[in-house]
């Protein structure tokens, strides 16, 4: 069995995370319920002939992945794996609306082609002329974690020396409003806005000084709160880790009624620095990829921007980080990171 290390982490998000050397030095405050990502000039990353067909998510994914590869100094990965909850919703809406508006006549193929869920992974491969394993996971709040799990398995089982893995979701223009309407109609709905973004990582079996190891990752489709606690304890003991070893506990708390899962899980780590991020990134199915991004930055820079702190104080070096995310009380995931 090999070990799995993170060689680069890149995020295009609703915060200033992409074209900066700093780490959340200035927080972008959002006052709307729907927040768009801060987009770079995509022409710097994507050829005009490809760019002209790309919707927001594809642009974000291709640009973020290209920078992740660049930082890791990796021209060609040995696997490309993505996760996306809603897929290419922008082009899906576009094609659907032209079906409706034109009553199935005079339809053109571009938005249909680009609406396929694996468009981001495919465009990355096409751009790199990269013929390796290519997969896309589309499982709600576990879309990114499924991709990460596959990538992790590739590395530890030596199926690949390095893997490009990422999570991406775009807001779209129409369907999101229906989702928001339903959310507003529920008691204890989301308190953070809906967002979008793309976070990409290069994983490798090569170790270097101070690099971050993905020690373990686990996903659970459904669990009661009590069952979840048992699973979390089991996860820690299987990795020979006691609760006190965790220096930062990062949760996907979003203010809805299901935050009680995080509250309950946090009771296992009463002395641990408790971090959150969805108030910065917005909520979307692959927001947890932004969570992994901020966790890697905390470990790398050994700083904790105030805005991330939910509870506790940053007083000592951070070596071990545990991330826990769930969506609407299901699709739970644990990711355990350790700075070498």
């Amino acid at each position: 069995m090999k070990n799995c290390y993170i060689h680069s982490a890149v995020s295009i998000s609703t915060q200033n995370t992409f074209e900066t050397k700093g780490f959340l030095t200035e927080i972008v405050e959002h006052s709307t319920k729907k927040i768009e990502a801060i987009h770079p000039n995509y022409k710097n990353f994507i050829s005009p002939s490809s760019l002209r067909r790309m919707a927001t998510g594809v642009k974000m994914g291709v640009a973020a992945s290209s920078k992740a590869l660049e930082i890791a100094n990796l021209p060609q990965p040995e696997a490309i794996i993505t996760g996306t909850g809603m897929g290419c919703i922008e082009d899906t809406e576009k094609f659907l609306n032209s079906i409706i508006a034109n009553k199935e006549k005079f339809l053109t193929p571009t938005s249909f082609i680009q609406s396929t869920h694996n468009t981001v992974a495919a465009q990355i491969a096409l751009g790199l002329k990269c013929k390796v394993y290519n997969n896309t996971y589309v499982h709600g709040g576990l879309s990114f974690e499924s991709a990460l799990l596959d990538a992790h398995m590739h590395i530890i089982q030596d199926e690949a020396k390095n893997v490009l893995v990422g999570g991406v979701d775009e807001l779209g223009n129409e369907f999101i409003d229906h989702v928001m309407m339903m959310e507003n109609n529920t008691e204890n709905g989301l308190k953070v806005p809906f967002g979008e973004g793309a976070s990409f990582f290069v994983l490798s079996s090569d170790k270097f000084e101070n690099c971050i190891k993905i020690k373990a990752i686990e996903t659970i489709s459904s669990a009661s709160k009590e069952g979840l606690i048992l699973r979390l304890k089991l996860f820690l003991s299987q990795n020979n880790i006691g609760p006190k070893t965790i220096d930062a506990f990062v949760t996907g708390q979003n203010g809805d009624g299901f935050d009680t899962y995080y509250d309950k899980a946090s009771t296992l780590f009463p002395e641990t620095l408790n971090l959150h991020y969805k108030h910065l990134s917005g909520e979307f199915y692959t927001a947890s990829s932004f969570g992994l991004f901020i966790a890697t930055q905390v470990l790398k820079h050994q700083t904790v921007p105030k805005s991330l702190i939910n509870q506790g104080e940053f007083t000592k070096p951070i070596k071990t980080v545990l991330l826990y995310n769930q969506f609407k009380g299901r699709d739970h995931s644990f990711i355990l990171l350790e700075r070498q």
């Binding site: 809603m86 897929g87 396929t116 589309v138 499982h139 576990l142 996903t219 659970i220 459904s222 199915y285």
Partner: peptide, 23 residues
């Protein structure tokens, strides 16, 4: 969303552990 049918199948079959959807 694409994961919905999978979640429904998992719940109906009582599968609570690793569940995912590929597209």
């Amino acid at each position: 969303h694409a994961g919905d049918s999978t979640q429904k199948i998992a719940d109906a079959l009582g599968i609570i552990d690793f569940v995912t959807t590929i597209s």
